[in-house]
Design a protein around this nucleic acid. Sequence first.
DNA 1: AACATAACCTTAAACGATTAAGCACAAATA
DNA 2: TATTTGTGCTTAATCGTTTAAGGTTATGTT
Lengths: 343, 343
Amino acid sequence: MKKKVLLKDVAEYVGVSTALVSYVLNNKEKQARVGDEIAKKIRKAAADLNYQPNLIAKSLQSGKTNTIGLIVADISNPFFSSIARIIEDEAMRQGYVVIFGSSDENPERSMRLIDVFNNRGVDAFIIAPSENAERQIRSLQKQQVPVVLIDRYFKNIRSDYVIINNHDSAYNAVEHLIRNGCRRIAMMAYETHLEHMQQRIGGYRQALKDNGIEFRENWLPRVSYKDVAHQVEDYIKALTRPRLKVDGFFFATNTLAVESLKPLTRMGIRIPEDLAIVSFDESDAFDLFYPPVTYVSQSLDAIGKGAVDLALARILDKKKKPEQLVIASKLVIRESSIRKRSK
Amino acid sequence: MKKKVLLKDVAEYVGVSTALVSYVLNNKEKQARVGDEIAKKIRKAAADLNYQPNLIAKSLQSGKTNTIGLIVADISNPFFSSIARIIEDEAMRQGYVVIFGSSDENPERSMRLIDVFNNRGVDAFIIAPSENAERQIRSLQKQQVPVVLIDRYFKNIRSDYVIINNHDSAYNAVEHLIRNGCRRIAMMAYETHLEHMQQRIGGYRQALKDNGIEFRENWLPRVSYKDVAHQVEDYIKALTRPRLKVDGFFFATNTLAVESLKPLTRMGIRIPEDLAIVSFDESDAFDLFYPPVTYVSQSLDAIGKGAVDLALARILDKKKKPEQLVIASKLVIRESSIRKRSK
DNA sequence: AACATAACCTTAAACGATTAAGCACAAATA
DNA sequence: TATTTGTGCTTAATCGTTTAAGGTTATGTT
């Protein structure tokens, strides 16, 4: 129940000023010309008393918190929590800790988080921005606060970011379906103007076009962020009805796929015979589903590490030119998309 | 690029001392007898200048950070990330932010996290403790730092915690298998002395005993935390071999189940015909797996909210008597455990 | 002996807020 | 009129560090 040990306590214990203790414990003995003897004594005393520096005081003094603020859409989404883990590890290796928040794709919530984190003096932000977050990002940049965007980015904001090539990834995925005999290919996307989603849609449309398949609005349901499960189910029902019937489905994210697979299974739709399937992102469920689901694999490792690297680099040099990392994706082909083609 | 607006700036702008500004912006005008006129002016000025208080300075002064430190085994595990999300929401509602870390079931890492978070002055910890973390928890308690344990707890530490009734939950799960005609029931557990795991094992053994089934060490593989996938596969292979062959399997966690289902599917073992299955925790994969997996559902909501409540209560009263919350679990019965019994 | 230099340590002002104590003046009381 | 009480504000210490600037000795140089 003794009170916390302060720098002052160590100083008194040894019989020197706090300045000396500070110098020694921060390994500035050389510059401060501290005697070897006394330095040793100070270190010993600090250890004996189990002195732990108050990092808040340190931060106030130095203007550094060694904290990274991570804002994602939803930390309970495995895609984001996996990235969070990578970021945590990488940050920890470099002496940083991570404070996180979920924006829920909601600009107000995102803004609140950004403000709070900023007032707490995070040294850098890593953000998977929600729609309409441009102003917030710009504002941070104006204040010279390091920001790295992940997963999503804004065309008209020059910033550090780490993404994958969404257009090509989608293109490849859809082309893969076509090569496997699909001609009536739907894509389920989220209703958002966010660039990454538009790119994925673009890739889908381009693949159709390049293969002489006409695009149909009907085939591109756009799910809004609220009450996803219901909407998904409705769309799945509609698109598997005879009139619209599709033979291939490309899902723009793991949640869309997972939510879609539930009604598909219930309805007894055979995969890939009735419907071939490819999804973006990964999920444990994709492995265990039968048949295993083909998916576009993003290297979460590369994204997380890249984001931390860019963030730390910008902390060191706030004026540096923004860097963009485009991580390669990989189409992991499983049975959900492989049709035995009738020659 | 203007420098940050400080309290002092607001004060100068209005032409008063910083004290007044502080009183007004903290709604202490009454106690400090600030004039109505000037109070209005101050508020206006703060808004005009977009003053944002430096929370670090505030923390240093007040000794409060409004931060909760969350330490789990692995934030990328959906079980923990889902709880993290609940905790985040609940904490945010109460004006707290969350900083998190993954212990990886490793006491050294756990200790490092606890130290760092503690030196940053988190107001409370919410911890899913790893094995051998007793000392660390005790040390926090001695320092009067609020700690709430979740998911796991220590028999010989009096602390706040939120858990489910592991013994009974396991008992029910295993009994359910027995009622469905299983007699040779294995359980896959983690190799740890942590109480929650021992309780689950205890429930399993008790259920066997109460139903006249003799316990066999062979049937209880204990997986250590490193290289889980490999071990799991080996155990699955061994236990499905004719000599040991089991007809029911109870998994102590979602990761064990998910990792087990992979080799089981590859090996073409039919579920539930060849092997009936029940798992602890939940997972998207349990819904999509065919057949859907029976599982012991913990109310993550109740756990998360409960943990935050206990934490905040203890922040308010550090001497209060430790409280224990035992959340009810629910066995969600799906086809993976339902055998058509031959009468 | 007189002074410069080096070696070692202390003082005190920051960092940006909060808040107890005190000061000056006006109004109320006697 | 003198004294008390109340009102509205300022001053300055404080939280726990860091660090520039300065202060004392001891040592070296001439």
